[in-house]
Computed example of a mutant assay.
Amino acid sequence: MARHVIGDIHGCAKALRSMIQELSPTADDELIFLGDYIDRGPDSRDVVEQLITLQSTCKVVPLRGNHEWMLQSVVSRGMDDAMWLRSGGKATVTSYGGSIGRIPKDHLAFFESLLPCYETENEIFVHAMYDPSCEVVSQSDELTYWTHLPPSLPAPHQSGKRVYVGHTPQPTGEVLRHTHLVCMDTYCFGGGYLSAMELESETVLQVDRHGHIRRVPIERIAMLMKGCVQWFQGRKP
């Protein structure tokens, strides 16, 4: 059984399609999505359609991001749509034919099914941020959906579990990895990548918004080989 955690998609349907094809999940595999499937990118509707279809292929654990929170608040709770539209919601409305009234019922049901967080024996998954001193399921919506990682990273969670988040874009396009914290938002819609990490091996798969798999540059391979040669040359016989 393979288990992957996947960062913010933001309407990058080509990236998601290539990633799913590359991962080729089976019924025993688990894909954990950290939220923000919609807004900003070109095809939020297609992203949601892919995720709904994927649920019949493998175990999908979809968390709610702040962008799904905004959509649901507009559609179901009567919130004024100005903030959502300013935050990338216009792209989502366009992908649904120009009106939120055209969002299909199965897509609305998908949004309603999203989880605020997910916890296993060794891991915590939440869209935005966490309070190290309390259970993530009990923390505020502000932390769960809205708070970005500060420059001085939060302390390890009291449970000792490693925390996986999205929401805070990594402008370098690299996954932020620490022993106690991983950030998977590698800025796909802004020119970075959609990232998936295999939880046991920590192998990372990255795809750009055009659907191209990221390959290791030749220069980087050469640099690594040079480092290996220097290491061997420096060893005592």
Rank of each mutant, 00 (worst) to 15 (best):
A2C: 12
A2F: 12
H4W: 15
H4V: 13
G7K: 07
G11D: 03
G11T: 04
C12I: 01
A13P: 01
K14W: 03
K14T: 08
L16C: 04
S18E: 13
S18G: 11
M19V: 04
P25N: 09
A27Y: 06
E30S: 11
I32L: 08
L34G: 11
G35S: 02
D36W: 03
I38P: 07
I38F: 01
I38V: 15
G41V: 05
P42N: 07
R45P: 00
V47H: 11
V47N: 12
V48A: 01
L51I: 15
L51G: 11
L51M: 15
I52V: 15
T53K: 13
L54R: 09
S56L: 11
K59L: 05
P62W: 04
P62R: 03
G65C: 10
G65Q: 06
N66Y: 05
H67E: 06
W69E: 14
S73C: 00
R77P: 00
A82S: 13
S87N: 15
G88N: 04
A91I: 02
A91T: 12
A91Y: 00
T92E: 03
T94I: 07
S95V: 07
Y96T: 07
G97I: 03
S99Q: 10
R102P: 05
I103N: 12
P104L: 08
P104E: 06
K105N: 12
F110P: 02
F110C: 04
F111N: 11
E112K: 14
S113W: 04
L115G: 01
P116A: 08
P116S: 13
P116E: 07
Y118P: 00
E119K: 10
E119N: 02
T120H: 07
E121Q: 15
E123D: 15
H127V: 04
C134T: 15
V137S: 15
E142D: 11
E142Q: 13
L143V: 01
T144N: 01
W146H: 12
T147P: 05
H148A: 10
H148Y: 14
H148F: 13
L149M: 09
L153F: 14
A155G: 10
P156M: 06
Q158R: 13
Q158K: 14
Q158C: 09
K161L: 02
K161Q: 03
K161V: 03
Y164P: 06
P169F: 08
Q170D: 00
P171S: 13
T172P: 00
T172H: 02
G173Y: 07
E174N: 11
E174K: 07
V175N: 03
L176Q: 08
H178E: 14
T179M: 10
D185Q: 11
C188I: 09
F189Y: 13
F189V: 15
G191Y: 06
Y193Q: 05
A196I: 07
E198I: 04
L199R: 04
E200D: 15
S201V: 00
V207E: 02
R209E: 06
G211L: 06
H212P: 00
H212L: 08
P217Y: 06
I218F: 11
I221E: 10
I221K: 08
M223H: 12
M223R: 12
M225T: 13
M225K: 14
G227F: 01
G227I: 07
C228M: 14
Q230S: 15
F232A: 12
F232M: 13
R235F: 06
R235E: 12
P237M: 04
